[in-house]
């Protein structure tokens, strides 16, 4: 299915969902849940909180369907709703189970894995161990391609703060994983 076809299908289901068709919204859920859950999981580094945020994001999205004006893809709008839920969860519940780790975490069990160049698993674990703000910034910028300004807007912080946290996150990850930090995105 082409992007255009997917977009048309999305619009059709959106129109039906706006009229209260829950089955249509279920379709939208199925299309987007894995991407939204990945965002929430990486931003929160906590499975149960991520599940909760994902659920709340879809509930909010359904209730606020009338607010979606169609200026962007619905999936993009949903992404913002999910980030808001993550940040709301962070603020409201004070869930700070993930402590701020020092620059060198003595408990970190990660090590460079030369035989696994992708080091995907290690990278996931390392991202989860980043300090909260650094992790949130890193996920939005490095994984989801937001600019520092966009990430700042989503997180409610200055772009300069995002830039500093992003560099901090990259430095920590490179150090923990033993990889080249590579080119940084400014």
């Amino acid at each position: 299915m082409t992007d255009t076809e997917t977009a048309l299908l999305e619009q059709d289901h959106l129109a039906r969902a706006r009229n209260g068709d829950q089955a249509a919204f279920a379709w939208l859920y199925r299309q987007n849940v894995n991407r939204i859950y990945a965002l929430c999981l990486r931003m929160t580094a906590d499975q149960s909180v991520a599940e909760e945020c994902t659920q709340r994001a879809f509930v909010q999205a359904f209730r606020r369907l009338a607010d979606f004006r169609g200026d962007s893809r619905w999936s993009t709008w949903l992404h913002r709703v999910a980030v808001n839920e993550v940040m709301g969860s962070h603020r409201d519940t004070g869930r700070r189970r993930l402590r701020e780790v020092p620059l060198v975490d003595p408990d970190l069990e990660l090590s460079p894995n030369a035989e696994n160049p992708g080091a995907t698993l290690d990278l996931e674990r390392a991202i989860a161990r980043l300090p909260d703000r650094a992790r949130q910034v890193f996920v939005l910028i490095a994984i989801h391609g937001h600019s520092h300004e966009e990430a700042g807007e989503l997180l409610g912080v200055a772009a300069g703060t995002c830039k500093a946290q992003y560099h901090r996150a990259r430095g920590l990850l490179a150090q923990w994983l033993g990889v080249n930090e590579g080119a940084e995105h400014d």
């Binding site: 849940v33 894995n34 991407r35 859950y37 990945a38 999981l41 460079p112 030369a114 160049p117 992708g118 080091a119 995907t120 990278l123 996931e124 490095a142 994984i143 990259r170 990850l173 490179a174 994983l177 033993g178 990889v179 080249n180 930090e181 590579g182 080119a183």
Partner: peptide
């Protein structure tokens, strides 16, 4: 070893 960006590029964008 690969750069951090290469490792990031290998991350799945979706998780169930």
């Amino acid at each position: 070893r690969p750069s951090l960006d290469e490792a990031i590029a290998g991350l799945p964008r979706e998780l169930a």
